[in-house]
Design a protein around this nucleic acid. Structure first.
Lengths: 222, 222
DNA sequence: TTATTGTATATTGCATGCAATATTGATATC
DNA sequence: GATATCAATATTGCATGCAATATACAATAA
C-alpha cells in the first residue's frame, strides 16, 4: 500500500469546477441574485450534475452561493453589512498575522512584501487603479502568508474574497481605499523593523478607516 | 411568486447528514485516519450516495475530512501543530470579538456571559471536568456571539470545533486549560466593565498561555 | 517463510433516471 | 387591463447505473 506521501496528486472535477465558478462569481460574471440552473452550468463546464452539485456545497460554505430547497443555487447578494462583517474579521486575522510575521517571517518573505508595497506605490504614482487594487490585496495576502499559519491563510482567503468581489461588482469600495498608501507605509515599515505591536496597531488602524467608512455608508442608507 | 422571506424553511438531507457526521467525528466515534466508505455511511444514515457525497464536501471545508481521489473520504488526524494554528486563529477572532462586544453587546448578553462564567467556576469548585470544558467553551462562544458579527461567529465555530475535537479525542488539552479560571475572571471582568482594550488584552493573554503550552509540546515531541 | 504477480471483488467518480416540486403560460374571471 | 386558475413543462432532490480504479486475496516464485 502506498503511503499518502507518495500518492501522485490528482485533481478532481469538483476542484476544477469550483475554481472556475468561484472566479466567475467573484469577477461578477454571475450577478448577485442570479439563479444558477444545473443544466446550464453542466453544459457550460461540460460535466454532469453530480460533481456540479458537490461544487455547490463548497461555494455555499464560502458564502458565494445560497441553496434554496426546491429552487436550487442562487448567487448571494453582497451587502455593505456583509462587507463590514468581513472587514472586521480581516482586522482580527491580519492584525494577528502581522504580529506573527514580525516574529517568524524570513527576511526574504519581508523583502517580498516590501517589493509588493513598492509596486502598489508605483501604481498610485502612475494612477493605474486596477494595479493598485491588485497590489493592495497582494500586500495584505502576503502578510498573512508570512504568518506561516495555514489555518489563518485559508480563513483570510475566504473573507478577503468577499471584499474583492464587492470591489469588482460596483467599485463601491474604490474611493474608500484610494487614500490608503500612507497607512500602508506605516504598517509595512513597522513590519520590516519587526516591531510586532506597532505593526499590528498600524494595520488595525488602516483597516479601521475602511470599516468606519463602511459604517457611515450603512448609516446613510438607513 | 413568493418572496424569499415568506418561503417556509425546509431542511435538506445534506444538512441533516452533515450535522450527524460532524458530531460523530468531533466526538471521536469516527477515529482520525478512518476511511469512510460510502456504502457503510449510506446504510447508517439511510440515504443514498448523492446527498452523502455532497455532505463530504462540507466537512472537507470544515477540515474534518480529506478526500483522496480514487480512495474516498478519510477522517483528518488532528495534530498539535493544527491545534496551535487553530488557537492562533481563535486568538485573533476572540480578541477582536470581545472588543466589539464591549462596545455593542446588550446588558442582557453580558449578563448571560457572566452567568456561564459562574457555571464554569462552579464546575471547577465541584471538580466536574466535563462541565468545566462545556462552560469554558460556552463562555468563549458567547463572547463571539456578543460581537454581533455573523461572519465572525461562523469562522470561530469552524476553528473552535477542532479544539473541542482534540479535547474529546485525547484529553490532550485538559491539563492545559485546567488552570484558566483566574484568567477567565480577568477578561470577563473587563468585559462586564466594557473596557475593550483591557478585555481584549486579557483574553489574548489567556489564550496565549494555552498556545505557549502547545508550542512547548511540539518542541518536546521533535 | 516472505515477496510478487495475477485475478476476482469492492469502491469510487461521474452519468443518468425518476418522482416530486416549481415554473411557465394559456385561459378564464373580475 | 389586472388577477386567478389550471394544465404543460422544466427543474430539482435523491436514487441508481456503469466504467475505471483500487483493494483483497490466492497462487506462484524467491
Amino acid at each position: 500500500m502506498p503511503d499518502s506521501a507518495s500518492v501522485i496528486p490528482r485533481s478532481t472535477l469538483q476542484e476544477e469546477i469550483a475554481t472556475r465558478l468561484r472566479a466567475e462569481i467573484v469577477e461578477g460574471f454571475w450577478e448577485p441574485g442570479a439563479r444558477l440552473q444545473e443544466r446550464i452550468l453542466c453544459e457550460r463546464y461540460g460535466v454532469s450534475r453530480s460533481p456540479l452539485r458537490e461544487t455547490f456545497q463548497i461555494l455555499v460554505k464560502e458564502g458565494l452561493l445560497e441553496l434554496l430547497p426546491g429552487r436550487g443555487a442562487v448567487v448571494t447578494r453582497p451587502t455593505m453589512t456583509d462587507a463590514l462583517e468581513n472587514i472586521e474579521v480581516l482586522i482580527a486575522l491580519e492584525s494577528m498575522s502581522i504580529a506573527l510575521a514580525c516574529e517568524r517571517a524570513s527576511d526574504a518573505a519581508l523583502a517580498e512584501i516590501e517589493s509588493l508595497h513598492e509596486k502598489m506605490r508605483k501604481s498610485v504614482d502612475e494612477n493605474k487603479v486596477k494595479n493598485f487594487y491588485k497590489f493592495n490585496n497582494a500586500v495584505h495576502t502576503a502578510i498573512v502568508h508570512a504568518s506561516g499559519n495555514s489555518a489563518m491563510i485559508a480563513a483570510h482567503a475566504n473573507h478577503q474574497r468577499h471584499i474583492t468581489r464587492l470591489q469588482n461588482l460596483s467599485g463601491a469600495l474604490q474611493a474608500i481605499t484610494a487614500d490608503s498608501l500612507a497607512e500602508h507605509d506605516e504598517f509595512v515599515g513597522a513590519l520590516l523593523a519587526r516591531d510586532a505591536d506597532k505593526a499590528s496597531e498600524k494595520l488595525r488602524a488602516h483597516l479601521n478607516t475602511t470599516a468606519e467608512k463602511i459604517r457611515l455608508r450603512i448609516l446613510e442608507s438607513e
